[in-house]
Write a protein that binds this DNA or RNA. Structure first.
Length: 685
DNA sequence: GTAGGGTTAG
């Protein structure tokens, strides 16, 4: 008998009323069949039956007086929940219905209805009506109703934080949930100061925060870049014992990352027992935001190898961005493959970052084909493609894509015009550049920024219009910055205009330029004019300011590893084979009529020393290494921190014939695509 | 019974 009761009570508490009753009858059959009817069983069944009738009647009576009867009857979930709450009290160990509990049932039903009413609100007007109704029911001061009122209003998208706050202020004794709701809502509303103020208020009123409180607060600190405050709150969270809550940890990583503190971000990350996808994404994003691209790829590699790898578009966009910055084509291709294998349709952001990656890693064709296959493009997609074409020196094509953008009805922004103007500048399209510059303001209302002026100076400077460029700078309505003067200085170097070069340098030094390159260019210009005392003066000025020449380096990717070569580096791991290769190349080059252009070494040293210096340029070391390490016919891709010298340019053109290799070099301004002895820049750079 | 983390491209 006892067993029967236990089984029945289990069923009662977990299933619906009718099912429980039927089950009761079913279980009774064996007893009845085998004539095991005892007074106890009869009593049980009688009690059970009576209690169920009472409960049913009770529910029906309660609901009958409720104006929302149709709603309950047509809302199975609410009906079932109300039923379950009644059934949980209906077993043989407790009285079927306690009369004192009857109002509780009514309250529950109203609460449930209140919740669905709030959930159905579409706007503030509807919400206000619901609010009035809840007040009318007299359950406004019930903590469940009040909490849900605040939550529904605060977390809606109606911009009704003031109204939400007014409801919150009517609650006499707000608890943790209500405070959490307000904090979360203010964070969602981007009102971070107010969110933190509510946290302080929590403390003042002695309301204890819980693990739900902290992620929102760290997000607020992340946006405000308030590291000190974040650290303090971090202390509170750990004191309260939430240091192992994965949500708290993830938001901490993000907070430290956004505040630029990778050390704390990493230490939180490392101490996590179980890292979620969000944890990995947060640490990858933290590295990316600090420009630590190599670390970004390393963490991503670790994430994959530790099996916590789910191809998420957002994570891969960050990874692709890292590949772009590192010119890491092979890694970028891997990311592309992972995307294709796992995601059926790539979104615009992913497609745009893929195009950017391919183009900036030197695969213009691949980028173009992806671009033309895009079903939908936005302003950013066009911006990426236009500036990509600009970097590769394809000015006309960039202008065509720009027209295509206008035809599609997309409005260009200032960044698009930076791309367009730099495309004109790299391709020597002076007239077109001026047309675009004027149309930008008259046709699209974009006020030129200092960047646009910089492009125009570059455009004129490259074309040898040095005097015009200087006049242009002097007529600028805004203050020229260092970039503008640097463009002019570089142009002066290329076109050997020492007089204006000195003017440009003077302005750069007045702007307190800390760029050693500016001093180096001026000093080289003096050296070329054999004005050695001036050279010494510039070098001394450099030393006085504590600036030293940035060594040129070249990066080359072989088998997904990036190798760095610094000029004159004699400590290379494969030093012997690389210098042997350089030697071999030199022989071949001699047959092609190459003579080292020692005028490119602007040092007061003898010819032999100059030849040795030229040989050690990082680009040549990188080419030699790539020729050894890669199979015949593979294109060689190199990325450099500085522009290349004329000698390296000529040298690379010849190597592309001798070794039948395509050599794609990205310098600090643009791409040079060497093939069959010519360069895509047509010697205009 | 109510709620929480990472969110990307020029």
């Amino acid at each position: 008998m006892l067993t029967l009761n236990i089984i029945l009570s289990r069923i009662y508490s977990s299933h619906n009323l009718t099912f429980a009753f039927l089950a009761g009858i079913l279980f009774s059959i064996p007893w009845i069949t085998f004539k095991l009817i005892t007074p106890s069983l009869l009593l049980t069944l009688l009690l059970q039956f009576t209690s169920l009738i009472i409960v049913q009647l009770h529910t029906i009576i309660l609901i009958s007086f409720d104006p929302f009867l149709p709603l309950y009857l047509h809302t199975p979930k609410i009906n079932a929940m109300a039923g379950t709450s009644v059934l949980q009290r209906t077993n043989f160990f407790s009285p079927p219905v306690d009369p004192s509990q009857s109002s509780d049932l009514s309250l529950r039903l109203k609460e449930q209805h209140c919740l669905s009413l709030l959930k159905s609100c579409k706007n503030l007007e509807e919400f206000k009506q619901a609010h009035a109704q809840i007040v009318k029911w007299g359950i406004f001061w019930n903590s469940f109703s009040a909490s849900n009122l605040v939550a529904a209003c605060a977390l809606s998208d109606w911009g009704s934080m003031d109204y939400a706050c007014s409801i919150f202020r009517q609650i006499d004794d707000p608890g943790t949930f209500e405070f959490n709701t307000m904090i979360r809502a203010y964070v969602k509303d981007m009102n971070f100061g107010e969110a933190l103020a509510f946290y302080s208020e929590m403390f003042e009123r002695g309301v204890e925060p819980d693990n739900f409180t902290y992620p929102a607060l760290f997000k607020a600190c992340a946006w405000l870049k308030a590291k000190e405050e974040g650290m303090q709150i971090h202390g509170h969270a750990f004191k309260l014992g939430f240091e192992n809550d994965v949500y708290v940890q993830n938001s901490l990583i993000n907070m430290y990352g956004k505040c630029g503190d990778i050390v704390h971000a990493s230490s939180v990350f490392e101490e996590m027992d179980e890292k979620s996808v969000a944890s990995w994404s947060a640490i990858i994003a933290a590295n990316a935001s600090l420009g630590m691209w190599n670390e970004c790829l390393m963490v991503f590699g670790k994430m994959s190898s530790e099996g916590c790898w789910r191809p998420e578009e957002s994570t891969l966009v960050t990874v692709l961005s890292a590949c772009t910055h590192l010119s890491a084509l092979d890694s970028g291709k891997c990311a592309h493959g992972a995307l294709l294998r796992n995601i059926s349709e790539l979104n615009v952001i992913v497609q745009t970052s893929l195009i950017d990656m391919y183009v900036k890693c030197g695969c213009l064709e691949k980028g173009l084909s992806l671009f033309h296959r895009m079903a939908k493009r936005n302003q950013m997609s066009y911006a990426v493609m236009i500036s990509g074409l600009a970097m590769h020196g394809h000015g006309e094509e960039a202008l065509r894509i720009h027209s295509m953008m206008l035809e599609e009805g997309l409005e260009p922004d200032d960044v698009v015009y930076v791309g367009v103007l730099s495309a004109c500048s790299h391709a020597g399209l002076v007239d077109e550049g001026f047309q675009c510059f004027y149309r930008m303001k008259s046709g699209h209302g974009i006020e030129p920024t200092v960047q646009h002026y910089g492009c125009m100076v570059d455009l004129m400077g490259k074309a040898g219009m040095i005097n015009e460029a200087l006049e242009f700078i002097n007529s600028m309505p805004i203050e020229p910055n260092d970039v503008v003067w640097r463009s002019l200085l570089s142009a002066c170097r290329v076109h050997c205009n020492l007089k204006i070069g000195e003017i440009a340098a003077k302005h750069l030094f007045q702007l307190n330029s800390q760029n050693p390159g500016d001093y180096v260019i001026l000093s080289n210009m003096y050296a070329r004019a054999e004005k050695w005392p001036e050279v010494a003066k510039v070098r001394m000025e450099m030393a006085r300011k504590g600036l030293s020449q940035v060594p040129g380096f070249s990066l080359v990717e072989v088998e997904r590893r990036i190798h760095k070569f610094v000029s004159q580096d004699t400590s290379l791991p494969r030093r012997k084979s690389i210098y042997e290769m350089i030697h071999q190349m030199e022989w071949q080059l001699k047959f092609e009529g190459y003579t080292p252009d020692t005028s490119q070494v602007l040092l007061d040293v003898d010819e032999e020393e100059k030849r040795q210096r030229l040989k050690g340029h990082s680009q040549k070391l990188a080419i030699a290494f790539a020729l050894i390490q890669t199979t015949q016919g593979t294109p060689i891709r190199i990325s450099r921190n500085l522009t290349m010298c004329n000698d390296c340019h000529t040298y690379t053109k010849l190597i592309s014939i001798i070794y039948e290799r395509e050599i794609i070099i990205r310098d600090r301004n643009r791409f040079h695509h060497f093939k069959d002895g010519t360069c895509s820049c047509r010697d205009y750079w």
